[in-house]
Design a protein around this nucleic acid. Sequence first.
RNA 1: GCCGAUGUAGCUCAGAUGGCCAGAGCAGGCGAUUUGUAAUCGUCAGGUCGUGGGUUCGAAUCCCACCAUCGGCUCCA
Length: 666
Amino acid sequence: MPPQLTVTLPDGSARELAVGATVADLAAQIGPRLAKAALAGSVNGLVVDLTTPLSDGDAVAILTPTTPEGREVLRHSTAHVLAQAVTRLWPGAKYAIGPVIADGFYYDFALPDDARFSDADLSRIEAMMQTIVSEAQPFVRDELSVDAGLSLFADQPYKCEIITSVGTLADEVDAAPELVGGTTVVSTYRNSPEFVDLCRGPHVPSTSRLGHFKLMRVAGAYWRGDVHRPQLQRIYGTAFETKEALEQHLTFLEEAKRRDHRVLGQELDLFSFPDEIGPGLAVFHPKGATIRRVMEDYSRKRHVEEGYEFAYTPHLAKADLFKTSGHLEWYADGMYPPMELDDGQQYYLKPMNCPFHTLIYKSRQRSYRELPLRFFEFGSVYRYELSGALHGLTRVRGMTQDDAHIFCAADQMEDELRSLLTFVLDLLREFGLNDFYLELSTRPPLKSVGSDEDWDVATETLRTVAIGAGLDLVLDEGGGAFYGPKISVQARDAIGRTHQMSTIQLDFQTPQRFEAEFVGKDNAKHRPIMIHRALFGSVERFMAILIEHHAGALPTWLAPEQIRILPVRDDHFDYAHSINKRLSREGLRVRTEVADEPLGGRIRRAKLDKVPYILVVGDDDVANGTIGINTRGASDPFRGISIDEFSAFVEREVDERSIKQFGAES
RNA sequence: GCCGAUGUAGCUCAGAUGGCCAGAGCAGGCGAUUUGUAAUCGUCAGGUCGUGGGUUCGAAUCCCACCAUCGGCUCCA
């Protein structure tokens, strides 16, 4: 009997195999269907090739294309095929890195003679990739010394750079060299005599296992993300295990496009960015302004309830203010250039509200009895964002933050943060978002100020509070502001995308820079701690997220036009108008349209406007004092409903900010 | 800011290789139609083809610069 080894499977069962057996052998032993489906394996938590030999005691899982890890392997191998196709079509092309990303993969190239990919090239490349797939080339792993690697990739400068930067790149690039048995080796995968790539792996056994992929777009990308290094040509693609899965993903992208707030903002006449004003500077049309007003009014009401006091501050201030706050030192690039007055005095548009609120704090002596002090303002700020970074309402140059600064004593900080987090989550839920996780951003490695001790205390306090909230917490290493760490609330929207919403930042610096103080119980002066927080973040951005989350069909309480009344004929207009008057008096946003075209056409227009309720009134309704209700999203209208019943329902729906409309199934 | 693409009427888009007065649908004005749940009919008006230069007998079309938008990169206090 040949020597045996034993491995365990994810379900806890054990399998005996001959010494020297590989992951593929294990899959074959379990069953022929698994052997056929297997793409890679996971051995003791590490994803490996099917050809990897097993050792006694290994915990092994077989990865098929339907597992997340299997899908990653699939995409990674597809990226190699992309690079191979490009080198076939552009002999002499240099290939840099080709990692897996959230929804697919990319590969960066430098083409000979500084050539560029065009969109039309994508289909040519795709066709070549299909050819390579049909050639069923095996992926063969090899391990080389650094020197052998350098000579193998002598004509691939990016590969050589990766090889020589051992240690500095290890976690950054999947192709990094690794230490095996005390010597540095680099691994390569060759899938034909013509193409070999530096890669950590693993890969699918053969290119024939690939095929359901699509190249999405070309883009420029700096080598290693560094503005000062060459810009490469990046091709983005995605790959799935089946045609159906790929198509489902493409449908998802269509859905995201359908919800694009920039398109809906135009269609629904909510806002625009007139060229005459300038990039990234929005104007809100009446309907968009109504949404915004309702959002802001509700926010104000909640802030009053939570013990905030309101402040108003100007849009610009002298340079000295921003010198004191540190903004000019750290973020002058992101500020609009100064205006210079006759006397040489410079004024800047404000990029943040905190210096102003701090001055309100400092306007007189403060006692510990007053703390925590909470100053709230819808503060408009201006930031000179790079032109290429602008994006609809989500990235603008002029925006309004629902901003507040809380000044408190050190021993109040934790309680304050805790109640704040509850407030934030409650508020976001009122707007229809309900799937959250938290992110803790720690000290930035380069740009930051303050003692390590202050940062540690602040970070740990935030961590404690975040954990207490019972949501998932992820770490964003080095993502904090220059003056302190932060917690941000991330929300998943209706189609599963995540958006950064609220931020809560701790700040020991600003009070110090401005020498803010309070008199304690001990009659001595103490320095307050400052908490910056914005719940919507920016009103503009939050509105954009709401529009996309609801696909433009905002809940009734937020809808700019809540009810449209359509008289069937001219002579029903007076009745329609009397209903309009009644509903308007009850605080609802109602409009009556005249009967100048067939009902179907008017219904259609109201539907396209995504009005929550269309009321149709005709002969029957005039006779019986009723209405016909066409609820947004419902398949059939409700006829002969009493106005009392409808108005009572909608008043409650609005009052409770419910997303459940009249007649909707519970 | 960098790479690539795009820019024709309020919106969505046609307008090979330069050559009659630059077209359509929707939206808008006017008129007719009086309509019971996603498009009534007719008619009119609307564009210095993103802007500024250039090439040409002639430019929406070719070249250059700039502006804006889109997709990425970088950035995001």
